[in-house]
């Protein structure tokens, strides 16, 4: 019953977020601040993880191709497909649910605990629009981070190939160009936009409606991470079935 109530409350929150917008001169600064905190601030970890995971995918694929009849360029092909279709959009989003999601929940939750949200409401400000909308807009730039992740994932694979001696640079480049379908990029970015919305709104929901003190802020962050991850994985399945199935 509580879960159904929460789902309803979540959609009401989203509707309320678009009502009575904050003045643009103020909102603009909030959006820039959130782009800096949520996107620019996450580029380092996205780049680091993407580069090394790309390398690991390449090594594992190369080591599992023992049949001499399978062409070596398939290492590059497999790395590209894994990185573009799944790793960059989905698994980076799970990691971001931990980093960005817990940041959003704890910052909004702390504002709830210290009555800063009440202060906004008493002033006649739509606190959901003021707090959640700029984060949602900022995370619409998340696909740029994912695009960088895709590039670095493939680059990491190439570095592993060349420096680890698993295949030649020519084979790897041939592999990443083989049977390239533009729609796979479209599919990947559609997923990324949906995940970005989830990353902004579910942690905000858990922070905004939390009750209690500092301990509950921590608990809300954990709950937000779990639910954001669950929803991302479920949506990943649904979108994949709809778009590629």
């Amino acid at each position: 019953m509580t879960s159904i109530e929460n789902i309803g409350k979540y959609f009401l929150m989203i509707a309320e977020m678009f009502r009575k917008p904050t003045k643009w001169s103020v909102m603009k600064n909030l959006i820039f601040k959130d782009i800096n905190d949520l996107i620019i601030g996450s580029l380092g970890i996205v780049a680091f993880i993407s580069f090394f995971v790309g390398g690991v995918i390449t090594i594992q694929t190369a080591l599992n191709i023992s049949n001499p009849l399978i062409p070596k360029y398939l290492v590059g092909f497999a790395t590209r497909q894994s990185v573009i279709l799944e790793f960059a959009p989905t698994f980076t989003s799970i990691i971001m649910a931990g980093k960005v999601g817990s940041f959003i929940t704890s910052s909004i939750g702390t504002m709830r605990v210290t009555e800063q949200i009440d202060a906004l409401e008493v002033m006649g400000i739509n606190s959901l629009n003021y707090l959640v909308f700029p984060k949602t807009v900022a995370l619409m730039f998340y696909p740029f981070a994912i695009a960088i992740g895709m590039f670095l994932g493939v680059l990491g694979g190439m570095a592993a190939c060349v420096f680890g001696g698993y295949t030649t640079l020519e084979d790897y480049i041939l592999g990443i160009q083989t049977d390239f379908e533009g729609f796979h990029m479209t599919y990947s970015f559609i997923k990324t936009f949906v995940f970005a919305f989830v990353l902004a709104t579910i942690p905000s929901f858990h922070g905004y409606y939390m009750k209690g003190g500092a301990l509950e802020v921590g608990k809300a962050s954990t709950t937000a991470f779990v639910w954001t991850s669950v929803v991302i994985i479920l949506l990943n399945y649904i979108l994949t079935d709809l778009l590629l199935g």
Binding site: R19, K20, T114, E115, Q116, D118, A119, E121, V122, M123, G124, I125, N126
Partner: peptide, 23 residues
């Protein structure tokens, strides 16, 4: 109405127990 309430609230000042300053 919702908007009239928000307008009324813009005429209200509030001092919270903990200050509720934006940190």
């Amino acid at each position: 109405s919702r908007n009239e309430r928000r307008n009324l609230r813009s005429e209200i000042g509030m001092v919270f127990q903990g200050g509720a300053l934006f940190d």
